[in-house]
Design a protein around this nucleic acid. Structure first.
Lengths: 161, 161
DNA sequence: CTAAAGCGGATAATAATTGTCCGCATTAGC
DNA sequence: GCTAATGCGGACAATTATTATCCGCTTTAG
């Protein structure tokens, strides 16, 4: 079935972890991948995508790692989605109608393209509304507050610099 | 990349073809698959999904084929999407947060599920707005009117009963 | 100089999608 | 009743996408 890659979920939680870092500190990729239950070598490739999209910054060398580039209020779920999934459309026409109507290549036409683009915009616009800052607050609600504090302590232990 | 199956596009155009049939007539699956440039044997499986979802009706035996179950005004793009892709969510949590916070299985929790469900509803709601009747009208606009008439004639030739 | 980390490319393993084949059921026409 | 054309369902195969591993390289703190 059509499905979003689990990489998006992993990347969002990775960013929530990085959001727990004090200024200037970084978290090594291996620690992050461990916490989000991802295979370290593959997850590094996802981290690279986040770096390319300038959501996070990487520091090489011993005591290296990753940290957020922006403030959590300026980072939304859609940014992460875009970084991981790329800007490809959920739908793209195969040109079936062109074949059916025997159109020339230059007058290609699809009855679904506009509609699906609109649908995709609607889908994305919801993801644009939720910031990492808001997610971080939700994680601290009563029910999970204590466990979240444990996680913060874990980040303090694993971070460097 | 995350992508919608081409089967949805093929199914929509298949239904537009069936919409050109006079009452009581049917169109054989092989003719349909030919027109939508699909492999006949695989496309038949898609037709089966449309039958299961009660969007089209099948008639077995020689002079058999398929026809619409409903009027085009009562059939929307979302119905076709649902029939082909199934009711699975675009997103489903992998339970990463549960692991990170060391929650028990019964108190599982995901910060993205509600948001993504909302996004998916937005995406689907756009597809619910467009009916097959409207698509059929769009296909007949000035620019494609003549070619569409050719296609209708082709349907007349291939139909049976 | 060494060790720990990030980087990029090649390649392999796994999973999802798409496609084929076969035997069976149904029905119009003879 | 027999035959041929069609739909049906399941097993299987091919192809493509996703996920994962490996290797050699660069960077930098100590």
């Amino acid at each position: 079935m059509m499905h979003m890659k689990t990489g998006v979920e992993q990347a969002v939680y990775a960013i929530l972890l990085l959001n727990m870092l004090p200024d200037k500190a970084v978290l090594p990729g291996e620690a992050i991948s461990q916490q989000v239950s991802a295979s370290p070598t593959y997850f590094q490739k996802l981290l690279r995508k986040l770096v390319s999209a300038d959501l996070i910054t990487s520091v090489p060398g011993v005591k290296g790692g990753f940290k957020l580039t922006k403030r959590p209020e300026d980072l939304c779920v859609y940014d992460v989605y875009l970084a991981i999934e790329g800007q490809n459309s959920l739908y793209s026409s195969s040109g079936i109608l062109g074949d059916m109507l025997e159109l020339e290549k230059d007058e290609n036409c699809c009855l679904l393209t506009n509609l699906m683009d609109e649908a995709e915009d609607a889908w994305k616009s919801v993801m644009k509304q939720e910031t990492i800052a808001v997610l971080a607050r939700k994680m601290q609600e009563r029910r999970f507050h204590a466990k979240t504090e444990n996680l913060k302590r874990w980040v303090q232990e694993k971070m460097v610099a």
